[in-house]
């Protein structure tokens, strides 16, 4: 028994020595290139050079975060839908979120490409890896995933103190909203990303967390797909008291949350409480559908729509 333990111990120590050697050699090699290794949110180690980086963003939320971290001048490429903050519009475009143009990305010679495991496909990440591009994946699939995405980007972009301040800003707004909606009854809420067909925010999403933080209860509680296509039968049976529609118009941020956007044919659904009582509201979508630094604003908009009585006139998002 003891013999065996000894043998095992010797085996372990040998493994430890080898491991230390590998780490020393690896860090020497990477150190020579001036690189730090930061794990991304899929647990993959990403080597990041120690100098001003050329950064490509593959999602609007990432672009917003890079600017919020004070690294806007490092950005060399963004997607065609990255429109905030305004300087982002002037950057080179690498195509849409679903299928960005690989040639454009390569042409920009990025040191680091930020992608999101929620919007970009896993296939795209693999392709970027094969092209030898350091790709850092984020996974904002819950409220904490969003916070962690911002902190991880802070680590990758050598901006950790700023990242913590950005997160603190979001958390302040979350606490403010929580204080305002505390003690109020939680209405049943349906958040629709699309109205025909009905595509809703499902349980396994950060949107679900936002709806709960805003003092509502999401009527889609099953984990059957993050953004399920719903059937009217389910909507009637689950009787949402508030229906929120994502207002996708480009200038929607300037618009206010409004009730005049319900599709006219929905008047037939008088059995749905939200429609009967006129609580179908279009909410500007950019701060909500982008899991980035403006999420606190998005949460405030949602909470105002769900609990209008909890917010005074002066309480702007």
């Amino acid at each position: 028994m003891r013999y065996a333990e000894n043998g095992g111990y010797r085996g372990w120590s040998r493994a430890l020595v080898v491991f230390i050697l590998v780490v020393v050699v690896l860090s020497a090699v990477l150190g020579a290139a001036g690189a730090a290794v930061v794990p991304d949110m899929l647990g993959r180690p990403v080597a990041i050079p120690d100098r001003p980086l050329r950064v490509v963003s593959l999602a609007p939320s990432i672009t917003e975060t890079v600017y919020a971290l004070g690294r806007g001048e490092w950005l060399v490429g963004v997607t065609a839908v990255c429109d905030y903050p305004p300087p982002a519009r002037a950057l080179a475009k690498v195509g849409g979120i679903a299928a960005p143009n690989l040639e454009q990305i390569v042409r920009l010679r990025p040191d680091l490409v930020f992608a999101t495991a929620e919007g970009n496909s896993r296939n795209l990440l693999d392709q970027l890896e094969r092209l030898g591009l350091a790709t850092f994946a984020l996974r904002p699939d819950s409220y904490w995933g969003v916070v962690e995405s911002i902190l991880a980007m802070g680590r990758a972009l050598a901006a950790e103190p700023v990242a913590r301040r950005v997160v603190e800003g979001i958390e302040r707004r979350v606490r403010r909203v929580q204080d305002l909606v505390a003690g109020r009854s939680q209405p049943r809420v349906l958040y629709l990303i699309w109205t025909d067909p009905l595509i809703a925010a499902g349980a396994g999403t950060y949107l679900n967390d936002l709806l709960e933080l805003a003092g509502g209860r999401n009527i889609v509680w099953e984990r059957t797909g993050a953004y399920p296509r719903l059937n009217w039968e389910q909507v009637v049976a689950r009787a949402p008291e508030v229906i929120l529609l994502a207002d996708h118009r480009e200038d929607s941020e300037r618009a206010e949350t409004g009730s005049g956007h319900m599709p006219p044919e929905w008047h037939t659904w008088q059995a749905v409480p939200a429609i009967r009582t006129g609580r179908v509201l279009a909410v500007p979508s950019n701060t909500i559908l982008r899991p980035g630094p403006r999420l606190g604003e998005g949460l405030t908009r949602l909470a105002r729509a769900i609990h209008p009585g909890a917010f005074g006139r002066q309480e702007m998002p």
């Binding site: 039968e233 049976a237 037939t268 008088q270 059995a271």
Partner: peptide, 14 residues
């Protein structure tokens, strides 16, 4: 009536 859930499901959806 029009506000009844079962009636809406059967008559207006199914």
């Amino acid at each position: 009536g029009s506000q009844d859930a079962a009636a809406t499901i059967v008559r207006k959806i199914r």
